[in-house]
Amino acid sequence: MLIFSVFKTLTDHTVTVELKNDLCITGVLKSVDQYLNIRLDAIKVENAEQHPHMMAVKNCFIRGSVIRYVQLPASAMDIQLLEDATRRESGKKI
């Protein structure tokens, strides 16, 4: 639930999602759900030459389970808040 809340605070920020098939998509985070499925707008494929079939796609829904990493905007995050929330959540029972 913690990470879900983090993603919710990052809506309308630009993130880069790296999938398990090495596809890298940069776009504006529009929404996220409890499974950490992600909807991106105004997308751009970073390694477009390896994935030419993605050229025409402008927005997409990404299933949470195929995501490897998400590169987040560090300036939009409160690290102290993040660590306190993690301690609180791990204290009660994860």
Partner: peptide, 24 residues
């Protein structure tokens, strides 16, 4: 250490029971 012969080194800021993590 991750699947796919990957390894990360970073400062841990958040994690959950799935071992989803946020590192800087």
């Amino acid at each position: 250490k991750l699947r796919g012969d990957r390894q990360l080194s970073g400062v841990l800021h958040a994690y959950d029971g799935h071992m989803n993590m946020i590192l800087s």
